[in-house]
Design a protein around this nucleic acid. Structure first.
Lengths: 137, 137
DNA sequence: CGAACAATCGTAATCATTCCTATTTACAAA
DNA sequence: TTTGTAAATAGGAATGATTACGATTGTTCG
């Protein structure tokens, strides 16, 4: 997901394009992994002194709803990253820096009929550890 | 994990076996899925009026450390279940009742060398949806 | 430009969880 | 069985992430 496409989704859905919203997109666009609301808030604080939590959280949720961001929960905190769109995949997530690496493997492809009578909504497959950079540091 | 084995782990590690601890084990032993601290607290409250949050959380963490319980995070809340021990596996988790079903498939077995330079610590594979009972309800 | 109303601010409230100190309890040794 | 003592618990305050809300500001579109 690039910034242009994200802005289009905003306007197509009747949302206004504010400076804050653009800066939030810039933040995630420049990042290669999962970031917390706190990290975004700190970044935004450097641009808009006294920005409200409400603004940060409201827009994170909005972007999640619009599919501009994707989310996961690590250490009791929601984390957000630019939605990588394209086709379905999973991620390795670095415990130190939050950066991610795509894993082109989905265990749902190999499920047998164990869950035949179950209604399946969703699934999660994530691998955690240290990325090559954090490993050597 | 049965109650007898859990109590052995407590004493083997120098922890005391209190009534509250036994009742917590009974609660999870009688359950077939993931439960929250809140659910346990409500159950304990019926037995011990005025039980402290501290007692509930402290023992949940203790049981987690001792491998008596296993945990996962759903909807911003930690969930706990009896550790099913035996060999490594994953779970289907019902969004309604929290009950689980074992999945005998681990995606880590099929990983290629995508993560060759990464240090892998841990992983999570969970399938969410509705169990047969909640599906028909 | 200037309404209309969406977005934001400032801050209080909420929810899960953790922390702290005084008191109580389990258990081992006498 | 009694007792000393460290471990466990009660009671409630503190914390950290997140949500809520009335008042104010900014964006958009005619």
């Amino acid at each position: 997901m690039n910034i242009k496409e994200a802005v289009r989704r905003l306007t197509d859905n009747g949302y206004k394009t504010t400076k804050r919203r653009k800066d939030i997109l810039d933040f995630f666009s420049a990042s290669d992994g999962y970031r917390t609301a706190k990290e975004l808030n700190e970044h935004m604080e450097t641009i808009y002194h006294g920005i409200s939590f409400d603004t940060v959280y409201r827009n994170l949720h909005l972007y999640d709803e619009l599919g501009i961001l994707e989310t996961t929960e690590l250490n009791s905190e929601k984390h957000f990253r630019m939605n990588c769109g394209q086709h379905h995949h999973h991620h390795f997530i670095c415990n130190d820096c939050g950066n991610t690496k795509k894993i082109n493997l989905c265990p749902m492809d190999d499920l047998d009929d164990t869950l035949a009578n179950y209604l399946i909504d969703d699934h999660k497959f994530e691998v955690y550890g240290l990325c090559p950079l954090c490993k050597t540091a």
